[in-house]
Design a binder for these strands. Structure first.
Length: 896
DNA sequence: ACCCTCACG
DNA sequence: ACGTACGTGAGGGTG
């Protein structure tokens, strides 16, 4: 096989790398403040392009850093002038780029007086003469002039990992020119980016025409006099010197005097130690994990080819049969993957499943009647058989639908990946696996998406996909658990999130009974009111229009009626509630619009929306709680969202009348934490004044008002003072700013600032904690809850004020919101356990951040009340008491 | 697909 | 000078 020489244009590719990841600039910063976007992209490039090529010789050429004077500068003073200054964020990465090149086992080279092009040009000719196949990688089209039958020029398109290959044949096909003619084309046209001119008025098209006719520059000028009289001819003659100067500038040197030769370029693979050190310096966690996954860390000599093969070659996947089941029955641990036709696993159709482990191999089948097989069933239901999977809650529900009770789960990759890092988590196995250096196709690639969704008819194709998923899950377990341990998150995973996922699975499967008749009746009444309002609005407006269209509404209010524009949005006038409320006194139509909006929302989102998702099978609503979505550790709820059922207005709150117990003589029971976030704040800051208020069970907002407004203990707190104090307390929890508070309270920024200052004087430890947590965030790049739930803040050191400020507010808010989430999660696990142990009929139905909703038989009510409230208020031990309030009644309306 | 608006904690 | 309160999901309009 012909030996390979690889020549890389370092400057051009690094430049591309920087701009390919430019939008990530602020996200990719080490805690020390070094930008790494170009480094990340350059590393990707080296890994995906260089390693598979396995060259014998390799070099990365750089433009000389010092001594700008090349012969080109002498030839034309303006050469490459007028370029934008290189950004400092890019410059600071230069040094590490060279280190990265070395760690990957390639050589760096630069030489004063030469550009990278010339080094590449010279070595490419030397290599060719010595019988090598030469490959040049660059982002610069000029280098295509170097292409020959043995020299291929690869040019990166879009980013740095997609490549177009230029052979002489391809150049001919694409440009209609030979590589040599590329130079003469530039002689005629000049180069705007290098800032030198060619012949006046000659561009791409003309140059191509001329070269087709005359072949090259010398021949053209030899025959220029024979040309017909034209402006172009005059220009060619007048600019002859310019053209020849441009030709020299465009010609890459192929016979430079270099201080190195081919023998200095031997490539013998990446240097693992160097890579580990570099990746650690640069905080390249993914790249480090990938290295570890390839098991290259401690064995410097392991061949890269072997490691590559290991990561990309999966075990063969075989169709499940009796023999396989018999073998599986003997294993202690296995991976399981079930694929479905949609996200909503309550209703989705089952596609196929895979099961297996590293030792016995992986098996798949479309036939779900296998789950009636006693041996397979035992495997799933035996808690001693440890299961590894991706999304335990989903699998619990799917197996529950098949009549099985999933037990023994030890590794839920989706949960672990979420706990390790919530940022950029899309809950897709393929992307999360890639964080650990394991690669497999996404579902979309196998099934298609949207209207094109289709299950492959080819069994092997389908089985491979499922089997490979199972294998990736199986093999990533140890690394993922090691990372958890390193983050001190093993307890959070094993004792909170994993058990919680089964509590949630039960809640979802249980469902919340809905009285459809009641909902439909409300819908009819709403329709009548909405129709009336519509008529009134049209009448006042003097025309019909779509009230739901903010565009049309804006035109009516602000153009036809000339009402004052209070706020604008990106796309036009704002018609949000706070705007309309200000306009209402001036125009009677506005209050009608407000009422219309309110009712239309209730009708469309809640009446119609909920009716559409009531199961025809059991008349219940089965939401899905997303356990791995929020950045703070809260749950979210979808299809439908049961965490935003109306409460604040009476009209909306009536919707809750439709949420009823699933059996006669049952009640709905709700218990909620009172002021949990402020209590958490008092506990983690240890502020004595706030702690005292809670220990005395005072009205916290009134006490805050007393402190901020300097009222005596016997003085009365008026409603306005309390309202202000309440807003300040909210603001504190959100990571306060004077701007935000002033906007919320409608006061001046100066007054808001004073409130905040007074507040911090009265609650000094809260102030200290806020400062300390921001400092910690800047230092570590993340903040934590009481249970070590982590939130990374990639923008905490951003140069952009807004992004940085947002990250700082988040640093203050997330530990509070997240710790409150930790607490209710622990309470849910304990409540569920107690209900099971005491054989109660009560069922947990919904969690709404600080509230749990149950249904239970009337006669259990007192027992459940006692149990739930006591478990909730003792869920964790804080230096501040937790307080729980409860309500019950025939529907959710009364239970809050 | 994105924006705006609005429902909840 | 900058220009936002923290965390979510869903529906309707628009391009």
């Amino acid at each position: 096989m012909t030996k390979k020489l690889l020549l890389i244009d370092g400057n051009s590719l690094a430049f591309r790398a920087f701009y390919a990841m430019y939008q990530q600039l602020d996200r990719m910063v080490t805690p020390e403040g070094l930008h790494t976007n170009a480094l990340v992209a350059f590393n990707n490039f080296l890994e995906t392009i260089i390693l598979p090529m396995q060259p014998d010789l390799a070099l990365v050429a750089w433009d000389a850093r010092s001594g700008k004077e090349t012969f080109r500068g002498d030839l034309y003073a303006e050469y490459k002038s007028g370029r934008d200054k290189t950004p400092v964020e890019f410059k600071e990465q230069f040094l590490y780029l060279r280190e990265m090149v070395e760690a990957h086992g390639l050589h760096n080279y630069e030489q004063i007086g030469l550009e990278a092009d010339d080094i590449i040009g010279t070595l490419s000719r030397q290599g060719e003469a010595a019988g090598y196949d030469v490959f040049i990688i660059t982002g610069d089209q000029d280098l295509t002039q170097l292409a020959t039958d043995h020299v291929t020029v690869k040019i990166t398109k879009k980013g740095v990992t997609q490549i177009e290959e230029y052979t002489p044949a391809h150049i001919q096909e694409k440009f209609g020119l030979t590589p040599e003619q590329i130079i003469d084309k530039k002689a005629l046209t000049g180069d705007t980016s290098d800032n030198y001119p060619g012949v006046t008025k000659v561009g791409e098209k003309t140059a191509l025409k001329l070269l087709t006719e005359y072949h090259d520059l010398d021949n053209l000028y030899a025959h220029v006099d024979e040309m017909k009289k034209s402006k172009m001819k005059e220009n060619l003659i007048a600019d002859k010197d310019v053209a020849y100067r441009a030709q020299k500038l465009a010609t890459i040197i192929t016979d430079a005097d270099l201080e190195i030769g081919l023998t200095d370029l031997t490539y013998d693979g990446p240097k693992t130690k160097g890579l580990v050190e570099l990746f650690e310096t640069l905080h390249f966690k993914q790249a480090l994990n990938k290295l570890k996954a390839h098991q290259l860390v401690d064995q410097d000599d392991t061949s890269v080819e072997a490691a590559e093969a290991e990561s990309s070659n999966f075990h063969p996947v075989r169709e499940l049969d009796d023999a396989a089941v018999a073998t599986l029955a003997t294993v202690d641990s296995f991976a399981l993957q079930i694929d479905t036709t949609s996200d909503n696993y309550h209703t989705a159709d089952l596609i196929a499943f895979a099961i297996g482990n590293d030792k016995v191999g992986y098996f798949a089948s479309r036939d779900f009647s296998w789950f009636e097989n006693d041996q397979l069933k035992a495997l799933i239901e035996n808690p001693a058989k440890k299961v590894r999977l991706f999304n335990a809650k989903e699998h619990w529900v799917l197996l529950h639908r098949l009549g099985l009770k999933l037990a023994g789960v030890d590794f839920d990759f989706m949960l672990v990946a979420y706990l390790l890092d919530t940022v950029g988590n899309d809950n897709v196995l393929a992307t999360l696996a890639s964080r650990f250096g394991a690669y497999l196709p996404e579902d979309e690639e196998v099934y298609g998406k949207g209207a094109k969704f289709a299950v492959p008819t080819d069994d092997q194709l389908l089985y491979n996909h499922l089997g490979h998923k199972a294998e990736v899950i199986d093999t990533l377990r140890d690394q993922a658990f090691a990372d958890l341990e390193e983050h001190q998150q093993s307890h959070l995973y094993h004792d909170i999130e994993l058990p919680l996922s089964f509590v949630l699975a039960k809640m979802e499967a249980q469902g919340f009974m809905v009285n459809e008749d009641r909902l439909s009746k409300m819908g009819q009444e709403l329709d009548e009111k909405i129709a009336q309002l519509k008529d009134q609005i049209y009448q006042i407006a003097g025309e019909e229009f779509n009230i739901n269209s903010t565009k049309q509404l804006g035109e009516l209010l602000f153009e036809k009626m000339n009402l004052p524009v209070i706020k604008k949005t990106k796309t036009g006038y704002s018609t949000a509630v706070e705007v309309l409320e200000q306009l209402a006194p001036q125009a009677p139509i506005v209050s009608h619009i407000l009422e219309y909006r309110q009712l239309a929302k209730i009708k469309s989102t809640y009446v119609d929306g909920l009716l559409a998702v009531v199961s025809p099978v059991d008349q219940k609503i089965h939401t899905r709680f997303l356990q791995t979505l929020t950045q703070t550790g809260r749950l979210s709820s979808v299809d439908p969202n049961l965490q935003n059922i109306p409460m604040r207005t009476e009209e909306g709150r009536k919707i809750r009348h439709a949420f009823v117990p699933s059996q006669p003589d049952y009640l709905i029971f709700g218990a909620d934490y009172s002021q949990i976030e402020l209590r958490v704040l008092a506990a983690i800051t240890g502020d004595p004044n706030m702690k005292k208020a809670f220990m005395d069970d005072d009205d916290i907002h009134a006490e805050t008002a007393r402190a901020v407004f300097g009222l005596g203990p016997d003085e009365e707190v008026d409603a306005n003072h309390r309202r202000t104090a309440k807003a300040v307390n909210f603001g504190i929890v959100y990571g306060i700013s004077d701007f935000g508070l002033s906007k919320n309270l409608g006061i001046s920024r100066k007054d808001a600032k004073e409130f905040i200052e007074t507040y911090f004087r009265e609650f000094p430890k809260i102030h200290d904690w806020m400062e300390q947590i921001k400092e910690q965030a800047h230092r570590d790049g993340f903040v934590e809850t009481i249970e070590h739930r982590r939130r990374y803040l990639p923008e905490i050191n951003s140069k952009n004020f807004n992004r940085r400020s947002f990250a700082e507010r988040t640093a203050m808010n997330s530990p509070i919101q997240g710790s409150a989430a930790d607490i209710i999660k622990i309470a849910m696990i304990k409540v569920n356990q107690a209900i099971e142990e005491q054989n109660l009929k009560a069922k947990m139905l919904v969690q709404v951040h600080d509230e749990l909703v149950f249904e239970c038989p009337q006669e259990e009510l007192e027992q459940v009340r006692e149990l739930v409230t006591s478990v909730m208020d003792s869920a964790v031990s804080l230096s501040v008491p937790l307080k729980v309030e409860d309500h019950s009644g025939p529907t959710w309306y009364e239970a809050k």
